[in-house]
Design a protein around this nucleic acid. Structure first.
Lengths: 140, 140
DNA sequence: AACTAACTATACCATTTGAGTATAAATTGG
DNA sequence: CCAATTTATACTCAAATGGTATAGTTAGTT
């Protein structure tokens, strides 16, 4: 019931890129966000594949957001790093449901609703909003 | 971002005990809820230690709820099996927060709120309600 | 065209966690 | 005392997590 270390690192990276709003090298990201270089590269690869970041090769290359930060939600990042959210196996895999979805299971139903709310919450927050609240906080 | 198998088994066990409302042997629970016997015993031990179940030794022994099903919530069971919920490490362990909680981190704050809602949802559902909705469902 | 700073892909490894097993001991009712 | 049951501890095996290593490919600069 916990997000990966890699997912947490992803949050930091995307915040960093949102603030800078330019191409940033993996080296700078690794140093400033305190992520092991090699591990970071792997994470960046996943984010590129998911269409959240774009990579630029060669000298002066690096990474930048692939789209407007307003269109990147917490849910997007989590699913890019960990696949679809499923708070209980029974919600996605019949094999793990003792009732095989044949009879109504009260826990199954309630967990399904709770998960829906969680996913909803996560998709409501995009990185533009996060940065805005960050800035207004710093100005106080 | 997923509950343990053991937690899911716990749900089944508690539903079973709520429906029966008597002492039930580990053997019956294992067979009817399709949980490996030895593994079930370990789980039952945790639930007893957490004060959710009571155990009865000797012949005709077994397990029963330690309190009214109205006072057992989904959250209680999850925390008994997995410890306190923390959707991100940074929420509980400073070491995992790149900002060491010194500056305000926008992700930290939002995740904290989302977690609070999740915990709230989970604690709102108790097993009496679950059973009631189950029964009304079956009568249709 | 060569050089070099960057990204890319694949494979590898160590540690932790998850899921389940095994053994033996303690308890209770009859 | 016996048998059915719970309790405690320790073990095993596989998968996931977190991170490394190697060997490339790309593209701007000279």
């Amino acid at each position: 019931m916990q997000l990966n270390q890699a997912t947490d690192y992803s949050f930091r990276v995307i915040l960093h890129l949102t603030l800078k709003d330019t191409i940033v090298s993996a080296k700078e990201l690794a140093e400033q966000e305190q992520v092991p270089m090699r591990f970071l590269l792997k994470i960046l690869g996943s984010l590129v594949k998911a269409g959240i970041l774009k990579s630029y090769r060669g000298q002066e290359g690096g990474y930048a957001l692939a789209k407007d930060p307003k269109d990147i939600t917490l849910l997007d990042v989590i699913e890019a790093m960990e696949g679809p959210i499923a708070i209980n196996r029974c919600l996605t895999h019949q094999d793990y449901c003792s009732k095989r979805w044949t009879k109504v299971c009260p826990v199954h139903n309630v967990l399904g609703n709770i998960q829906k709310e969680l996913v909803d919450d996560l998709s409501k927050h995009n990185f533009q909003d996060l940065i805005n609240s960050y800035r207004s906080c710093q100005n106080e």
